[in-house]
Structure formats: C-alpha cells, structure tokens
C-alpha cells in the first residue's frame, strides 16, 4: 500500500538517502533500523512530505503523493515525534483534537475519541485540561501518541518515539503501544536505533547504512541469514538476547548453541 521508488535526497552535495526502493503492505509494521546518520529519519519524513525528495516517487494506495495537497496527505498520516512536539499553548485536549478539528469533526465525536484514547493509554481524564509542561516526559509522549492516532489514520509514522524516555518508562510505553488493538489494522513505519525495540515491534526490519537499505526482511532473517558482515556485526552485541527472543520454549538445542556462542565470544 506504500510504494517507494528510487527515492534520493541530497543536501548540498551530501547524500542522505541514496536511491532507496521498497514496498510496504497494509497492516504491516516496518522498522527502519540503523545508526545515526544512516538516513532513516530523512526517509521517514519523505513519506509525509516533511522533506521533499531530490528525485524518485512515492505512491500511497497507488496515488502519487506529489499530486495531492501536502496538507491533505498529512492529515491522513499520524506522526509521532521523538520529543513530543506538543503545542505548549494548547491543553492536552486541544492538542489531541488538532487533526480532527482540521478534518472538520464535530465536537461530540472529538470528545468521545479523546476519552477513548486517554483510557487506552492509561491516562486520567483530569489531565485533559492541563498543559503539556505540567506532565512528565512519559505522559507527554503518550499524549503525542494519542494526538497521532486521534483522527484514526491508516498510516502511522514514528520517529524514535521512545528514544527520549528512560528505560523503565520506555518499556512501559512499548507495552501499552503493543496492546493498542487498533494498531493491528494500521500500517506503521517506525524509525529507531534501538535493536531490542526493532525486534520487539517489527514485522519487517529495514537495516540502513549511509542512505541505503543494506538488508530488509523479517527479524529472524537478518539475525540468522545476514547478507554481509555489516549486518552480522550490527547485531553481534545483542545476539544472544535476540536469538533467545526468536526461540520457542522447546528449542533446547538452539538455546545451548546460542549460549555457547555467547560465552565463547565473551572470552
């Protein structure tokens, strides 16, 4: 449902995204994984035209996104920022209501949807009248998520959404995120440099380096069948935990092999 064809983006001679192509099916969760500067955020921002490509095309549902008004495009795509990006002069309720208001929803519908999201994200309704600066970082990020989901968009873009949180809050939020059933029908593109997170949330992972996709596929594919040394080395630090994650309780032999491997590498 999202078709990216030969997308390139250069800044003043520096190539951030280098001739990237891929497709994403409806309902898939694709994680773009890579180090800082690999081009993953730039690529993400070209999906909703926050950044325009130097060359190439992007199709959503077979529609060329450059042929419609960017505002229209963006209202149907939810976007979550790493540092919330909440409007400081809007209350929580007003922040969540931004896109629905732009789409012309009536007050009643907006209120219902807002209450629903607050409940799903385990936030008390009393927060609705507060301002962002009055909440903690974790709570603000939940609001950011609620805001992105408010208009029930079919596509969700997330730019290192849990990156600014402490490890404890991060895990809690990831759990709540996975528990949101409405996400099951959404197409999600998530950018992160956190390997664990990628393995936790992804249907498919695109590993990026220097503006290119080095390997794309299911998490297990990248882990067990890396196409080159870069991919293999990328996961080496956490290989043991990741392999364990992939296993079933009955995979005893695989477990022992993985453990030996880990211990050998340590010494």
């Amino acid at each position: 449902m999202i078709e990216v064809k030969n997308i390139t983006r250069t800044f003043d001679g520096y190539t951030a995204v280098d001739d990237v192509s891929f497709s994403i099916g409806e309902g898939e969760t694709v994680v773009f994984l890579g180090r800082s500067g690999s081009g993953k955020t730039t690529l993400l921002k070209m999906i909703n035209r926050l950044i325009e490509p130097t060359s190439g095309e992007i199709y959503i549902d077979d529609r060329n996104i450059y042929q419609e008004k960017p505002e229209q495009l963006r209202r149907n795509i939810g976007y979550v920022f790493q540092n919330t990006g909440l409007f400081p002069h809007y209350t929580i309720a007003e922040n969540i209501a931004i896109v629905p208001r732009l789409l012309g929803w009536d007050k009643e519908r907006i209120q219902q949807r807002t209450r629903l999201l607050m409940e799903k994200l385990h936030l008390p309704e009393s927060y609705l009248a507060s301002y962002p600066h009055q909440l903690s970082g974790g709570q603000q990020q939940r609001i950011g998520l609620a805001r992105a989901l408010a208009a029930d968009p079919p596509i969700l873009l997330m730019d290192e959404p849990f990156g600014a949180l402490d490890p404890i809050t991060r895990v809690s939020l990831q759990k709540d995120f996975k528990g949101l059933d409405e996400l099951k029908s959404k197409t999600i593109l998530l950018v992160t440099h956190d390997v664990q997170e990628a393995f936790e949330l992804a249907d498919r992972i695109c590993l990026m380096d220097k503006g290119r996709i080095v390997q794309a596929g299911k998490p297990a594919e990248l882990l067990f069948h890396p196409v080159d040394d870069y991919v293999r080395d990328f996961f080496d630090d956490q290989r043991f935990q990741l392999e364990v994650k992939m296993m079933k309780p009955s995979d005893h032999e695989e477990l022992i092999a993985a453990f030996d491997n880990y211990k050998n590498r340590q010494s």
Partner: peptide
C-alpha cells in the same frame, strides 16, 4: 518559536495560514 513545534504543526497537516494564526503568532 520552537522549530519542533513548527514542524509538528506542519506534520499535523496545517496550512501556512493556519500555522501562522494558530501557532506562530500566539507563541
């Protein structure tokens, strides 16, 4: 005005004028 807030306003799908009057001028 915080560039992140401005970017968020764009990402939400606000037009130029909407960004000006609802976000930038107020902040």
């Amino acid at each position: 005005v915080d560039p992140l807030v401005k970017e968020a306003a764009v990402a939400m799908g606000m037009t130029r004028w909407q960004r000006l009057f609802r976000v930038e001028l107020i902040l």
